[in-house]
Computed example of a mutant assay.
Amino acid sequence: MRLTVVERMILGSRLAVVICLVSYGCWLSYIPWKVDLLDIEYDMFGFALLVFGIFSLSSMLFVSHVLLPRFGPRMTGLAVIAFAFALQIWVFAPNTTLFIALAAPFSLAFGVIQPATLAVITQAEALSGRRLQPLHWASFSAGSLIGLLVGVISQALKLPPVLVFGGLFVLTVLVGLYIFMRPFGTVTFKPISSPGFRIPSQTVLFLGALAAASMATISIILDWSALWLTRDLGLTIALGGMGIMAFNFAEIISRLYGEKLINAFGESLVAGWGMLVGCAIFLIATMSGNAYLIVIGFGFFGFFTANFVPVIFGVAVREETENPIAAVNDVNLLAFVGFLFGPPLIGYIAKSVSITACMIILAVTWGLIAGILMLSRKLNGVSNGA
């Protein structure tokens, strides 16, 4: 059956996100192995994440203002191929110095995929009249979860990392070629105008600040939960990725039904009160100190906070009708400012206090974000359509 233009846009963007996050999710589960292998200190690991953030932000800024307006989103397939090569050399960095330095090329490739796929989904939403952001972000969760499962199973079977990541490399390159030649190769995208380098509107700055706060702290789960569960709470390395798996699985379920949830209950309940409930459950689980309760807490937190990011981007599109693609990319850029400064700060707190303290900060911060967003009155109630 021949796919429509919108279906091809959705297929290409979701494939790009999923295949890259599969590799990245697998890599996250192998981080304790790499940290132990190179004897990397927490603060040095945080510095590697700082390098990742700086180059990701620079890449996204350049892509949004130069590459996307000039070449369009079709370059996403090529970025996926570059991502595969960059991750391969980062995973097998032979020492701490190169581990930090090689985070840069990986983040440059990753920085192309995010704004390019966001541009595609924003255009697809305009053509279809549907809320596609929740399912788009579900692709991130699905890719991470599949990757974590691959990582956990591979470590349980004691497969050589070169075999695991070599196989993912070949698969990612093949998918990148397919995206470039098939779904995106047969789509004529609308021209994307560059907004120029200017100060975003107050609405975009506000939404971007909330997104930045969330990105600054969500890395606590992605980057530190495996170390926390294994080194501090006693789970085996093979089970270290269980927290991220629970978080991502719950995210996927919530985002798969995100469009229906938002239409049925409204943005305020889904992205406001729901987040507060998730934060409270996760805080209680963290304070218990029980690794298995904490894994369950990760799941509840993932479910109740999953649609915050899609709602934020939806609000940006609704409020900034003149150039919605520029608005979502500006919010995305500001979010990565949080990702830039959050990890090294979290690394310092993890080393000076504890990773448990970082998890408490995560729950409290996201609760504050939910409260501020509801007080802003920018969230809609129950809707009857897209």
Rank of each mutant, 00 (worst) to 15 (best):
K351I: 05
F308G: 04
T230R: 03
D232K: 04
S194F: 01
R231W: 03
F313W: 09
S352F: 14
L235I: 10
G243M: 01
V353I: 14
V175D: 06
I89T: 07
F300H: 02
A209T: 08
T96I: 13
Q114W: 12
N323S: 15
V63D: 02
I349L: 09
R2H: 10
Y178V: 06
I284V: 14
N329L: 06
P200Q: 02
A327F: 01
G111I: 02
W273K: 12
L49G: 05
L37D: 15
L375A: 15
N95A: 11
A213S: 15
P324K: 07
A216I: 03
P344Y: 13
L256Q: 12
I237E: 11
A48P: 11
S141Y: 06
V331I: 05
A103P: 00
V51R: 03
V270E: 02
T203I: 15
G243N: 03
I54L: 14
V328C: 12
A138W: 01
G240W: 05
K351Y: 11
F180M: 10
G167A: 13
G111A: 03
S107L: 00
L78S: 12
S193G: 13
Y292S: 15
G289M: 06
R255I: 03
L261I: 10
S58Y: 10
F339M: 14
S23R: 13
I121F: 03
L334W: 07
L239R: 11
M359A: 03
V152G: 13
G143M: 07
I121D: 00
A335S: 12
I253Y: 04
L239C: 00
C279S: 02
D223E: 11
S288W: 13
F249H: 10
A357N: 12
A86P: 10
L159P: 13
A138D: 09
F165T: 11
L261T: 01
I100F: 05
A306Q: 08
V164M: 10
A216Q: 06
I284H: 06
I237R: 15
I312W: 00
I19A: 05
M275P: 04
L235E: 00
G314F: 08
T4Y: 09
L87Y: 01
A156C: 11
L78M: 13
K190N: 15
L345I: 13
A79D: 04
I294R: 00
Q155S: 13
L379S: 01
V6R: 08
D223T: 02
Q155P: 08
L38Y: 10
I349M: 01
V173N: 05
T186Q: 09
G208T: 02
V51E: 02
R318G: 08
I237V: 15
I294H: 10
Y42V: 14
E320W: 10
L229F: 10
G385N: 10
V162D: 12
V152A: 15
Y178Q: 10
I296Q: 04
I237P: 06
E319N: 11
I220M: 02
V331Y: 00
G151Y: 01
V277W: 07
L21Q: 13
